[in-house]
Write a protein that binds this DNA or RNA. Structure first.
Lengths: 258, 258
DNA sequence: CCGCGGAACTTTGCATACAAAATCATCGAA
DNA sequence: TTCGATGATTTTGTATGCAAAGTTCCGCGG
């Protein structure tokens, strides 16, 4: 509550390890990989070879392996015995289910935050973060828009006062999966999308937590309907644009590298 | 959906690595530590020394360190640079917030599962798992009762059909934190507790998802009220029985080992 | 043309070694 | 006694080595 929020930008692709030598190499590698995933340098399904990462980051394989295990525990990376690590890949259904899941989480955040929101720095931060969403809306096909939405909800979750809610929503795999959702919404009507959020935001500011929850819920369910119908259309096909990078050729199998 | 559920017991404290030599040592160590945590052999705040674990499990430090990092990514273990690993400790407030958080999750599971529940093996499994809760109720101060409740909800989450919900609810740290909740409920009226669950279960079987959610929600909020008033009573004191093991002396600080 | 060995190469998993950092124990001064 | 410094010991963090498992590639028979 003392620190309402960092400014509404979150990208932090820092350099090597030159400046901050206090943190361990493991966390440096973890951060680098997470950044790489968030920036799209690593795409779902991509194989991560310990020796290559070690060379790239100028460390030995030991901290790289530890970082990969940490990310595997996080759910960002998939680890198979004797076959190493890959960026975790979510099926179309899993992504839709993830949205349904986060609806439940964010509803809690919206409800608690709305009820607690008093005039003051927190409220200013909400306004500011919402402005960032509107600003990013013109670049709504870049990940800036998703990031702005994410930051808005992170702020609400923080304001909610539920420690676990914020802890959970900050985790790298949540950011990662949230980003993946962006690949699923080619069919949405964007004017409607931002109009929904405008309404949600206004209701949050009004302090009516019950109505805010209703608006937020119906927004998410609207998106879910669109996604589900799109998914039915594609059936088992690989998830739309997710194939772009040349990896992620669908299917559950652990296909050979490269 | 093909595999309704394993039988309603979940303890699996397996032996060394004698029999199954295909899985990696890392996963063996991870499983061993998780089992140890679930059995109470490792208590929150306890320091985990890599060399000791290595010797105990008959492996070198490398896989132990990787396992610790994986568990840190999971959220079961806390890792501090140059100071190693400890079993994660949740403050009283964090535990209460965790229950509020899981309410949101389980409400989703209850809603979806109830709506989908048709006569057949799934329904039989629900009945069976509920019977396990009733059976464990007589040992309601042991962890068997918590385990039975957990298994019941895991089953609902599986039946829900939401892939992410089940994935999430299976994670070790969820099991661990759920277990920690047991330390918080000395004030509950147990007759009421089981009566609530009896009602919830009956409503789930009836197929009325709306009412099932309402019953489940009010049950959790009832528990939350009790916990919050107990927490207000204790104020900043260490969490009731959690001190038992001689570790967890409250406070946020990273106190020296042993 | 396609599938099928099998050798050469790559990559993983684990063990060990060693320096840096933290912890602990001892001792002396306030 | 309590506090703080100081050296011994423990523990961590990282690098490196090597065997086993996996992957790739190439040539052969169908």
């Amino acid at each position: 509550m003392t620190d309402p929020a960092a400014s509404p930008s979150s990208v932090s692709a820092s350099g090597p390890a030159e400046d901050d030598s206090s943190a361990s190499l493991v966390s440096f590698v973890v951060d680098s990989i997470v950044d790489g995933v968030m920036e799209g340098r690593y795409v779902p399904g991509q194989r991560l070879i310990a020796a290559d990462l070690a060379e790239e980051y100028g460390v030995s394989r030991a901290p790289v392996r530890e970082a990969l295990h940490m990310l595997a525990g996080e759910g960002v990376v998939e680890l198979v015995a004797n076959r190493g690590a890959r960026i975790r890949r979510l099926s179309l259904q899993e992504r839709i289910d993830f949205l349904e899941f986060t609806e439940a989480i964010c509803v809690l955040g919206v409800r608690l935050a709305t009820a607690r929101l008093a005039p003051g720095p927190s409220r200013d931060a909400v306004v500011e973060h919402y402005a960032a969403i509107e600003a990013a809306w013109h670049r709504r096909h870049s990940r800036d828009f998703v990031v702005a939405l994410y930051n808005y909800h992170i702020l609400l979750n923080r304001i909610s006062g539920n420690l676990f809610l914020e802890f959970f929503y900050r985790r790298p795999y949540i950011r990662f999966y949230t980003l993946l959702l962006a690949d699923l919404v080619p069919g949405v009507h964007w004017e409607q999308y931002i109009a929904n959020y405008r309404l949600i935001h206004a209701t949050i500011l009004s302090g009516d937590s019950h109505t805010a929850v209703i608006h937020f819920s119906s927004h998410i369910r609207w998106v879910l309907r669109i996604m589900r119908s799109a998914a039915d259309g594609e059936e088992g096909a690989p998830a739309a644009r997710a194939v772009r990078g040349g990896v992620d050729p669908g299917a559950e199998a652990w296909l050979p590298g490269r």
